[in-house]
Design a protein around this nucleic acid. Structure first.
Ligand SMILES: NC(=O)c1ccc[n+]([C@@H]2O[C@H](COP(=O)([O-])OP(=O)(O)OC[C@H]3O[C@@H](n4cnc5c(N)ncnc54)[C@H](O)[C@@H]3O)[C@@H](O)[C@H]2O)c1
Ligand SMILES: NC(=O)c1ccc[n+]([C@@H]2O[C@H](COP(=O)([O-])OP(=O)(O)OC[C@H]3O[C@@H](n4cnc5c(N)ncnc54)[C@H](O)[C@@H]3O)[C@@H](O)[C@H]2O)c1
Lengths: 220, 220
DNA sequence: TTGTGATTGTGAATACTATCACAAATCAGA
DNA sequence: TCTGATTTGTGATAGTATTCACAATCACAA
């Protein structure tokens, strides 16, 4: 486990491998080959082996990888052996749906609490969790030194929510807002943007119409 | 507009630029520089210019880009001048939340219909849209030659939903399921995976703890 | 023990992407 | 009209990522 500089793309794929391994485990499989992982993730087997070889030698020539061992190692690499708690800020349609849907089967994550600023919502239930006042976030993050926050507030309130989280000591954020946020250097923010995915799909679809010679992407 | 092979990464950024331009338009700005776009998207101005130069010369040296013109051109490139309708399959927590939340301000997309197979749900309202039987998808896709489908069905039913969509002639899909799907060559499927984003965030957070010398990502 | 078939890990080659840095073009003001 | 301050578009370069292809290794059966 040396790993100087690893690309985000590789980390994404490791997460994917881990998910496949959990599934394989459920199906009772005890070994898996790079080719199987590759086909489940839509990439080449060489890419799988290359990704894993960055961190060590986890396989056995001739047979493949032990499912349990590889999963443990991947979780060690990702840091998800003991995953941090996740909180949601913004108890609107999206926030509540995420809370209700939950994070079962995603490797140990779970939503610990949901917050809002609307006094009319505070105290009401979202699934089985009471909606708490956004002012309480400060305390909750202090209690859980490490926490990931999901921002699902009204359009336009994204920066305010982010600032509140940062002030409370949060270092990792997943945002569903579409505004460009001002993010300090030491905070990691990632985005979920349905409309960008739609743009990518539209572009691909309309391009194929014009040029049916399926050139797919120049590179994944 | 030559563009032989363009990476998905570039397309994603173009989508991002388009979003920034819509915002700039709302704010009444009529020109924008590559540096402004860059700072809103968290990349370098050279990258912005490089991306745009793939498709033509849209700017004016010394001043920048005309907001309206560039937006029109980006939409032409993305194929979103007249965006395809979007449908949702699976009227559970996530599907309904997406429907209710809508796609306002995302460049013309809108959810046209939502489908489910649960007879207890069919006919009920999801926001203002009636939940329709999944059997009707066939007709709806025939009517709208081009359509993007969002899959938000129960875990385990993803492949069934995808197969139904493909049979109905759908070519572009955005899936919220976490299962590895078997996808034919001519169908484009993209995924929204909160748990992968959480893994990336966790990895980054835990890595910084061990090595506070902030090496961020090796790229992007 | 030896042979057979499968699979890993990786050097080398290829392909792709980002960054640098500057000439050419534009504008505003003297 | 001329000057200086900007900003674009892009050749050239540096840096990353992916693919190829194969020696090394292992499981197992004869
Ligand atoms: N990224 C995507 O793919 C995607 C998809 C759909 C919606 N969205 C976005 O998700 C966000 C939420 O959408 P929604 O339909 O759930 O909105 P909503 O209006 O239903 O809910 C927003 C909630 O946030 C609360 N809120 C507002 N400001 C807050 C603050 N500063 N702190 C805490 N809570 C606050 C409001 O009281 C409200 O309950 C919107 O920004 C929307 O644009 C994103
Ligand atoms: N990708 C993510 O980030 C993310 C986040 C949360 C949930 N999810 C996933 O989203 C999916 C939906 O979650 P949810 O909480 O809304 O589930 P849910 O159980 O609330 O709703 C699922 C709905 O799908 C319907 N359905 C089942 N099979 C169907 C079929 N073949 N055709 C049409 N409709 C069908 C069910 O009747 C139900 O109404 C799940 O797979 C979940 O794992 C993904």
């Amino acid at each position: 486990m040396i790993a100087e500089k690893v690309s985000e793309k590789t980390i994404r794929r490791l997460s994917h491998y881990a998910r496949c391994l959990r599934l394989a485990k459920l199906k009772g499989e005890s070994i898996v080959t790079s080719r199987q992982l590759a086909s489940n993730c839509g990439i080449s087997s060489a890419a799988v082996r290359r990704d894993l070889s960055i961190y060590g030698e986890f396989g056995k020539q001739g047979s493949g990888y032990n499912v349990d061992d590889l999963l443990v190692n991947l979780e060690k690499i990702l840091g998800t052996t003991d995953p941090p708690p996740v909180i949601i800020i913004g108890a609107g349609s999206i926030g509540c749906a995420l809370m209700v849907s939950g994070l079962n089967g995603t490797g140990g994550y779970s939503y610990e609490a949901i917050f809002d600023i609307d006094p009319g919502k505070i105290g009401k239930l979202c699934g089985e969790s009471p909606i708490r006042s956004a002012e309480e976030i400060h305390g909750v993050i202090k209690d859980n030194h490490e926490v990931i926050a999901v921002i699902a507030v009204t359009r336009g309130a994204g920066q305010a929510a982010l600032d509140l989280l940062i002030q409370a000591g949060c270092k990792a954020v997943l945002s569903f807002t579409l505004e460009p946020l001002k993010v300090p250097e030491d905070i990691e923010v990632r985005y979920v943007e349905v409309s960008t995915e739609l743009d990518v799909l539209t572009h691909s679809m309309r391009r194929k119409e014009r040029d049916p010679a399926m050139p797919k992407w120049s590179h994944s």
